[in-house]
Design a protein around this nucleic acid. Structure first.
Lengths: 330, 330
DNA sequence: CTGTTAGCGCTTTCAG
DNA sequence: CTGAAAGCGCTAACAG
């Protein structure tokens, strides 16, 4: 255990109160001389402030916690970067805790680690809380905001892309390039986000007068494996000329499986990914994508929890990024 | 601010001490009846323990902090998973804080966030602290351990792969498959890790009686871009038949650049990656790798800080994982 | 088995 | 400008 404020008070020959004041830099409340003395003593003792103790009395903290849903999703990084950048602007620190992979037990653990100590606010990256855990979070009286996830049934603050638009624009993109038989691979319709994407997809198809075959929509969990399975289901002799990967990972799964099946991308099959993380540039051909602005999501998230009453945007923009995985038809 | 132990004491008609005991589950120190009363009251008030306050008095915490070096390196995930798994076994919680990208200022920030509150120990994933910051860390009197990084000049606990062996075995692997002109791409010789890899590489080459051309070793920062640049430097008409990517990302950079140059992998050029993270399986052809056991590093890290005096391994094993990027010559 | 007391390290009135 | 004192929420003796 290191030196305390008392130790340095003794060494400097002043009272603990004074030490507290100079260390907190309450200018005007101590003489230059005392200031020097105290700081010297602090340095000599290698003093490290016990912030927990300070927070106990001031009843407020400057850390914001980000709970992230497993390490599998690769878009957490840009969100976290956004959070950090904005947090540092407000002189806030951020800690991250992993909540496992949709395991309520792990979620609970993550939540309590965070709730049980004075954090200023909580950001949840793509974590879908169980009812119990949501209740726990709400009862904690700490400002929170969900990121990269949306809900239809419950009323909580969240910031994400317009998932309906994601599905709609992805489909539109392919339609505009002459495709009419378009698959959607690896999407999870158990949750709002996925349902919205499917819905946007269907609307675009319908507007184009295309009847969606049941097999065109392959459900999954956005994973690489889900993409592979979807492509496997489509088969080598698929009638599809294009498929939308429900995530970057799913799209890569589709890509690699297509290749295994002997299909050339984009010659035989076009692929459009959803997310637009760095992985799109790593594979060959580079995957065109409907890209989300994850960084901005992080920024908006900390703004939201900092001023919960402000009517900040709940929707971050999306945009098409063309790379090399789409072929213009006709 | 939520209910405190006092509130529930009042509601249950007992003393705060008693409440503390039942909530801490000190069995044998309270009657079943009191237990019930207290728990009921706690639930009714939606009580959330203030762990910071508890830690203040017990002077010990059950959180272990992991400081990670930017989000760029993708091997952080398996290490963190290992840390989590082992930590949970010991009923420890883990928080993560990002230390930016070799920016001393950000490092310092991360360090103080962590030091200023009672964490039980600190794990540093692949972060190379500046002298000042190392001093800060050491003076904090908190057990710590570096992961996935090594040092020659300073004496600190660390756990990593044997980087000399990494370089040596990578080279051996290629040698055994008939290659003699072998490049090493994207390695950073400013630090111990990189120097060791280069040294292992040179030794293996020397043993095989091969004279390493200066241009064969292309320095860099292990990034995708570094891999690209290295391959660009080798050129389309390179005499090399194989190159070792200093990291997975560097290897992918080499791969994609080779393709841009019109080289087929592995027909014209073999590639061996170092690290063996999931990215190796995502690209085509899948990259063979000298794989590190990152998960194990995480596990060993928490063991090390839990029992600093035990003579636990400082070295985690590596192994060759064959995929599709190496061609057997002759 | 339970209440009382002291105090963790810090900040913050309140008097001087 | 500075010291004394109170107290944040909790635990840990110490008596009963």
């Amino acid at each position: 255990m290191g030196a305390t404020i008392k130790d340095i008070a003794k060494l400097a020959g002043v009272s603990p109160g004074t030490v507290s004041r100079v260390l907190a830099n309450k200018t005007g409340f101590f003489s230059a001389q005392t200031g020097e003395k105290v700081r010297a003593a602090a340095k000599e003792l290698g003093y490290q402030k016990n912030t927990a103790a300070a927070e106990l009395v001031t009843r407020q903290s400057n850390v914001i916690a980000a709970i992230v849903n497993s390490t599998k999703t690769n878009f957490a990084s840009p969100i976290i970067e956004g959070i950090q950048a904005e947090a540092h602007l407000h002189d806030l620190n951020v800690i991250i805790v992993y909540a496992g992979d949709d395991d309520p037990e792990q979620q609970r653990r993550a939540l309590t680690t965070v709730i049980e100590r004075p954090v200023r606010s909580i950001l949840l990256l793509s974590v879908d809380l169980s009812a119990d855990n949501l209740q726990l979070l709400q009862s904690a009286q700490i400002p929170f905001c969900f990121l990269s996830i949306s809900f239809d049934d419950i009323q909580v603050p969240y910031i994400t892309s317009d998932d309906w638009q994601v599905g709609y624009q992805a489909t539109q993109t392919l339609l505009q390039r002459g495709h009419r038989s378009i698959g959607l691979a690896g999407v999870d319709s158990d949750f709002h986000t996925g349902r919205q994407r499917v819905s946007g997809y269907r609307q675009a198809m319908q507007e184009a007068g295309i009847r969606v075959q049941p097999a065109w929509v392959q459900l999954g969990d956005y994973s690489y494996a889900a993409g592979q399975q979807a492509m496997q289901a489509y088969g080598a002799d698929t009638a599809l000329t294009a498929v939308i990967g429900a995530s970057d990972m799913a799209a890569v799964g589709v890509l690699n499986q297509a290749r295994s099946l002997g299909l050339q991308v984009p010659t035989d099959l076009s692929i459009l990914a959803i997310d637009g993380t760095t992985i799109c540039d790593l594979v060959q051909p580079a995957l065109s994508s409907i890209s989300q602005n994850f960084y901005e999501m992080g920024v908006a998230g900390v703004r939201q929890v900092s001023a919960p009453d402000d009517t900040s945007q709940k929707i971050t923009p999306i945009k098409l990024v063309e790379r090399q995985s789409i072929r213009q038809l006709k």
